[in-house]
Amino acid sequence: MDAFIPGIMLTIIGMGVVFGSLIVLMVVILLLERFVGSGRQEADPGAEEQEAAPQSDDLDLVLAAAAGYFLETESPEVYVPEVRRNANSLWARSARVGRLGQRRRR
């Protein structure tokens, strides 16, 4: 019981320090965003619009290039191993043997 009260106090102080630090950090980040972010906007207004909206002719080219890139470079994920096939196929030989057998019977 002697240690209980100091333990509670220590917990409250510890949590207070942690949350206090977090609040201070949050305020600092908000202030930085406000100053640095607005500075950027003022320095280059409309830059995003220019990048996002090319001329209509260019748009077709961009779309075609994107489609071409997709069609040509999309690497398939299907693994196809190299295989060896028997060069001496039974297909033609068995047909010849069959025909010879038929002639003999005639």
Partner: peptide
């Protein structure tokens, strides 16, 4: 089309041939 190629890699050309081998 890649899946078709993969399927063919398991199959013989006809019912008299053996299926292809691989290393």
């Amino acid at each position: 089309f890649e899946m078709v190629k993969k399927l063919l890699s398991f199959l013989p050309s006809n019912n008299l041939d053996d299926p292809p081998l691989s290393d």
